[in-house]
């Protein structure tokens, strides 16, 4: 049979209905079916973190999640943080600290950082580095990313 399955997924506040093969990865559903190409695919085995999105508020690997498993869920992608005309505060911190070079890992970094900032105090640089350790960046040497997240943490703590 290998039939398709109806799913309803809310992505960045917009509800989508689709009929998908169970094998379709959430990352491909977001990119191919919804044309939200900000979510990047870097390894498809859960190591690089480029495809990280939020599902019901928690960061998840979109390459290790089936689209059918997102049925009924709220998904947030990098596009939810702000667009190029109106960057969100975390995106601005990344820009100000030069926390990206090629930009390919960046969406995953931003979504991971969003979840980290909600869940952890991130009091030390070490804590931030541990939090980032599931997201590979090959360009920056991480230092400026750590700086950007430190700044975002300070901003968060003020509130």
């Amino acid at each position: 049979m290998k039939g398709k399955i109806e799913i309803r997924v809310t992505v960045n506040g917009e509800e989508h209905h689709a009929s998908v093969e169970p094998r379709l990865l959430l990352a491909d559903f977001i990119r191919e079916n919804l044309d939200l190409t900000g979510t990047h695919v870097g390894c498809e085995h859960g190591i690089c973190g480029a495809c990280t999105v939020l599902m019901n508020g928690d960061s998840v690997r979109a390459c290790l999640t089936l689209a059918v498993q997102a049925d009924g869920a709220e998904v947030e992608t990098v596009e939810s943080l702000g667009d190029s005309e109106n960057l969100g505060s975390l995106q601005r911190a990344f820009r100000e600290h030069h926390a990206l070079q090629c930009g390919f890992c960046t969406p995953g970094m931003l979504m991971t950082a969003t979840d980290m900032l909600r869940k952890y105090p991130l009091e030390t640089e070490d804590e931030i580095r541990v939090g980032l350790s599931g997201n590979i960046c090959r360009c920056t040497g991480y230092q400026h990313i750590v700086d950007a997240i430190s700044a975002a943490r300070d901003e968060r703590n003020k509130k």
Binding site: G46, G49, T52, D58, S59, V60, R61, L64, T65, T112, D115, M116, K119, V130, G131, S133, G134, N135
Partner: peptide, 12 residues
């Protein structure tokens, strides 16, 4: 649990 993979993996 601190040694188990990464936040996004631990979330799932």
């Amino acid at each position: 649990m601190k040694y188990v993979a990464h936040l996004a993996i631990r979330n799932r």
